[in-house]
């Protein structure tokens, strides 16, 4: 057993307290090749990102745009499964010290067994979870106690359409960060944010929430990263990073990260 110091270190909290805008990268586990999960993590750590979201591939990712749909399909074809991912991550904490968040759809977690899944997460050193189709109300009623028992932080999404009252409920229920979906959309890179999006980032930042906000969906380069982090603590890049992996493989990671945050 190697629970080690994991339970005590609040890696997400530490990363959020660092000065300057936080850069988080999402990638699909087992993509482009089945055994790339760890090499991608290493490369991201070496290039100074602050946090990583590991995507659990799902056959029907209905909140995702074409890029993540395709990387998920490819990962599944490569043979990626939840069990496989936990095997790959068995010794991850011997070399990766960044906060690690698993992001995926709820059905594979349900099939693994919610408690068994949480236990595995703690065992390998996962810090938090993003399960976009596990809604707040059902989480509170049925699952919160289990996730908390294993010290896992649950991250919830808000969108430009989320009411202020609901944002406050989400803020009370979380103790990591709030995932601020940039625009009403599925995942995918955008050219830039319109003034309405910036107004929304600003509006939420002025709500004095206890949780910092991290913007995701549509961040692709230094410009969108800058726009997003003007009002929010950080930003998450997913599709644009996966496109880099598709085009250049792991050797493209370093220059991509430098181009976003020189």
């Amino acid at each position: 057993m190697q629970i080690k110091e994991n339970k005590k270190t609040d890696r997400i909290g530490v990363a959020l307290k660092k000065e300057g805008p936080l850069l988080s990268i999402y990638f699909t586990a087992g993509y482009p090749h089945l055994e790339d999960t760890l090499p991608v993590l290493r490369e991201l750590q070496k290039n100074g990102v602050d946090m990583i979201e590991i995507g659990l591939p799902f056959s029907d990712p209905l909140a995702d745009g074409p890029t993540i749909q395709e990387s998920s399909m490819a990962a599944l074809k490569n043979g990626m499964t939840t069990h496989r991912l936990f095997d790959q991550l068995r010794d991850v904490r011997s070399e990766i010290h960044l906060p690690l968040i698993l992001m995926g759809y709820f059905n594979p977690v349900l099939q693994f067994g919610v408690e068994a899944f949480c236990e595995k997460c703690r065992e390998v050193g996962i810090d938090g979870l993003i399960l976009p189709d596990l809604p707040l109300e059902i989480y509170q009623k049925q699952y919160r106690a289990i996730f908390e028992k294993y010290g896992l932080k649950m991250v919830f999404l808000i969108t430009p359409q989320t009411s202020e009252a609901r944002i406050r409920t989400i803020d009370r229920t979380s103790d990591a960060f709030i995932y601020m979906v940039s625009t009403a959309s599925t995942t995918g890179a955008q050219q830039g944010f319109d003034p309405a999006a910036e107004d929304y980032f600003k509006r939420v930042s002025e709500m004095n929430l206890k949780n910092p906000q991290i913007v995701g969906f549509g961040i692709s380069n230094a410009q969108t990263f800058g726009q997003a982090t003007k009002h929010a603590k950080g930003a998450i890049i997913g599709s644009a990073f996966i496109k880099t992996l598709t085009a250049h493989g792991l050797s493209g990671i370093s220059s991509f990260i430098k181009s976003v945050r020189p």
């Binding site: 209905l62 189709d133 809604p135 059902i138 999404l157 969108t159 359409q161 989320t162």
Partner: peptide
């Protein structure tokens, strides 16, 4: 049953 939907669909 229920509504297992991402927040984007909530409103």
């Amino acid at each position: 049953g229920g509504a297992f939907i991402p927040e984007m669909l909530y409103p």
